[in-house]
Amino acid sequence: MSIRVEQVTKRFGAFTALDRLTVEAKGGELLALLGPSGSGKTTLLRIIAGLEHADEGVVRYEEEDVTGTHPRQRGVGFVFQHYALFRHMTVFDNIGFGMRIRKGSKQVITQRVRELLHLVRLEGLENRFPAQLSGGQKQRVALARALAVQPKVLLLDEPFGALDAKVRQELRQWLRQLHDEVPITTIFVTHDQEEAFEVADRVVVMKSGRIEQVGSPQEVFDHPANPFVMDFLGHVNVFHGRVHDGKMVAGGIEFNAPENSANAPNATAYVRPHDVDLTRIPESTESIRVKILQINPAGAVARVRCYSEEFGITLQIDLSRDRYLALRPVAGEELFASPRHARIFSPKEDYSI
């Protein structure tokens, strides 16, 4: 079941939540709607579900126009951030609720619920009430309840937002595995780029009711379409300069620009923290003298914050564990930072170095 939203606009008073937006979820794929708060992600999801109505535009399931169709008739399973479980019902009854209101037979309901309890790894907990479950278990019950009615589409609104980091990590892996076992077309909303990249087949990056970029996680991360996407997908170090004769010149640094790149008086180079090396002697003419401000060596990556007097900016550098142990920088020390890769944007064009 593919889902296509065509030229959809949604306004709340004077505020435009979605602005002539077009996007498609391919049949059987797991699509992430990624963006900051206020970008329109949840509004788009609710329009797809039929819980909100668009002011303009069309929603299609395959080739069928379902724009005016009631949510129950769309065959959608919807999972909310805060579970929305019935507190007075057991796990078993929560999962089977949708089938009961559709007048399913007791035998069919029992068989389906037991299949889902196995699928979501909750066997043995069917007689517990929501108050007796952990947050991760509640979310799995909510997912099982959505799957119980065999929906054509599964929609998830920030499904792991209320959980702690460790449980979120476990459920992300579980959701990806579940989708591989039950390849239903799934669209989920998140503001967490790590979550989107780990789980989704494709990512839709949104801002202010519009789509900035659509692609696989690797495509979006390696080839961001514009400065917003580059900046939103993780910390970046920013250098301002100009493109001239095939070079991006920023102070004493030069980045090679691709052949045939146009000259631009105003250009910006974005460099990821892991694309900057740190040394005690300058590696090249592009090395920048920096003063170490702070070091956080915890974890697999040591995060080093330093200041460049030449550019008047604070840089973040991520060193591998081995590199950090070999260098052992200390706060207050003066070293040299060497950017290795940059993504360069000008007002008219963007270049990938």
Score class of each variant (00 low, 15 high):
S105G: 09
G246N: 08
H235D: 11
A54D: 03
S37H: 05
V271D: 05
A337W: 11
R128M: 13
P36C: 03
F255M: 06
M89P: 01
T9F: 06
I184L: 08
L21T: 02
L33Y: 12
S208F: 06
F86E: 12
T90R: 07
L293S: 12
A337G: 04
A326M: 13
H244F: 11
K291G: 09
D318E: 15
P297K: 07
M230C: 14
G241R: 03
P282G: 05
A225E: 12
G124R: 08
H179W: 11
G312K: 10
D231Q: 07
A54G: 02
L325D: 13
A269R: 02
R242Y: 09
T285C: 01
V220N: 01
V249Q: 14
G135P: 03
I288G: 00
P227Q: 10
R20C: 10
Y324D: 10
V113C: 04
V189L: 01
K247Y: 12
H82W: 10
N94K: 01
E158F: 13
R280V: 09
G215T: 07
T90N: 04
D277G: 13
P265Q: 11
H235R: 14
M99E: 01
V301R: 04
G234F: 03
Y270N: 03
P151S: 08
R168N: 08
G252Y: 02
A142Q: 06
N263P: 01
S320V: 05
K247D: 11
V204L: 05
T279I: 04
Q169K: 14
V167G: 03
F188V: 02
R74T: 02
L325P: 00
V203H: 03
W174K: 06
D222I: 02
I292C: 02
K291M: 13
F255I: 08
R140L: 06
E24I: 00
A84T: 13
P224L: 06
A17H: 04
F15K: 10
F80T: 01
G50R: 09
P258C: 11
I353K: 08
E286K: 11
